[in-house]
Amino acid sequence: MIVTEQKAFTEVNESLVGHQKIFVIGCGSCATAWHTGGEAEVKEMVEKLQGAGKTCIGWAISEETCDERKTRRELRAHSSELAEAEGVLVMSCGAGVQTTALVLEDKPVYPALNAMFLARLQRLTRADERCLLCGECILASTGGLCPVTLCPKELLNGPCGGYNHGMCEVNPDRECAWVSIYHRLQRIGQLDRLHLIQSPKDQSKRGHPRLVDKGAA
């Protein structure tokens, strides 16, 4: 899941300066699960905008804002309101905001959220970062726990000298990623994998913007 946070309403309101008629779009995927841009949050936003003197001429939820086909279909159903809208506020991650902007072409589109990280959803109110999308997964040798994500230094060959009583020097409330990996490998009988030297990452796989076109080849 992509974890997002709502921007302060003042920032959102300032970005809409000069626009009276606003259309709000929420996301049925991550932002719904994390309660930052689902139906309830979209309705709250509509009220806030009206409280700030804006006219909300409509709202919609795209099943997945980042899926261009789904967003296009959803917005087509609201074409008359959108034609009238001066600005469109999107309550999703940056991928959803940009997908909407590309679908709407000549309409100004604004973000209501900040996208933060790719996470495990632990419970309704707690999510922790689990993947940096590095393009070169090494979880097979680390007991299914990722040092690239969990170690602030992204170390591949074991802990730095900074782990103190098993805890990370940078985030003393969290266990050192390599201590976690060590315990996990011990539990699953794969401690031997800790002795393999990992080569430095191919950072070019993280070079952005990345694109995959499975149909092109």
């Binding site: 230094k153 170390l155 060959n157 900074g162 020097e169 940078v170 030297i197 080569s199 430095p200």
Partner: peptide, 27 residues
């Protein structure tokens, strides 16, 4: 050496690099 994390120093806003680690630096 791997080196301390930037967050512990006097420029905590700096981008930490850690492209290599102490083992791959030795290599």
């Amino acid at each position: 050496l791997t080196g301390d994390h930037v967050s512990l120093g006097d420029h905590p806003q700096a981008k930490p690099v850690f492209d290599l680690d102490s083992v791959s630096l030795l290599q």
